[in-house]
Amino acid sequence: MGYQRQRDHRQSQPLRQVKFAGHWRASAKQRLVKVVFANNRTRNYDTIATWLHTVLLGLQQNYNVRQFNVVAHSLGNAA
């Protein structure tokens, strides 16, 4: 079985900025990160995946995050 990715080129926008806010306790073993996309209506799955990839790279570079689990809902699970 497979699926076809829907493309909506009108809403395909590059991720322009990633903002990180908040803090974790030094003793935290599992840190929770909430990701909210400014454009939460795009149905371009390649764009959503690129945005998530950019966020993950930022977490890796800025916070030394090496492993992660993802819980998503709605279109967030498309990434």
Score class of each variant (00 low, 15 high):
21 A>F: 07
34 K>S: 12
7 R>C: 11
20 F>Q: 13
58 G>V: 08
3 Y>I: 04
74 S>N: 04
68 F>P: 00
35 V>A: 05
15 L>V: 03
11 Q>G: 01
69 N>A: 15
26 A>P: 00
23 H>D: 09
35 V>D: 02
2 G>K: 14
65 V>Y: 02
50 T>F: 01
20 F>S: 08
15 L>D: 02
22 G>H: 06
25 R>S: 05
20 F>K: 13
9 H>A: 15
16 R>H: 09
65 V>M: 15
10 R>Q: 14
19 K>A: 03
21 A>T: 12
30 Q>F: 13
60 Q>L: 02
75 L>E: 02
14 P>V: 09
67 Q>N: 15
40 N>Q: 15
13 Q>E: 08
25 R>V: 00
52 L>N: 04
41 R>G: 09
61 Q>A: 01
2 G>T: 11
33 V>K: 01
41 R>Q: 15
24 W>A: 05
52 L>Q: 11
64 N>K: 11
75 L>W: 06
76 G>W: 06
7 R>N: 13
15 L>K: 01
52 L>G: 00
41 R>P: 00
1 M>P: 02
68 F>M: 12
41 R>F: 13
34 K>T: 07
4 Q>W: 10
9 H>N: 14
41 R>W: 12
17 Q>C: 07
16 R>T: 11
61 Q>W: 01
62 N>Y: 03
46 D>G: 10
59 L>C: 03
10 R>N: 13
6 Q>P: 01
14 P>T: 08
15 L>G: 05
61 Q>P: 00
2 G>L: 07
23 H>A: 10
77 N>Y: 05
33 V>I: 15
26 A>Q: 10
17 Q>R: 07
25 R>L: 10
25 R>C: 03
47 T>S: 12
56 L>A: 09
7 R>K: 14
48 I>E: 14
60 Q>Y: 01
75 L>N: 06
71 V>M: 13
12 S>L: 10
53 H>R: 13
32 L>C: 04
39 N>M: 09
25 R>H: 07
33 V>T: 01
3 Y>T: 04
38 A>R: 12
59 L>E: 03
76 G>V: 05
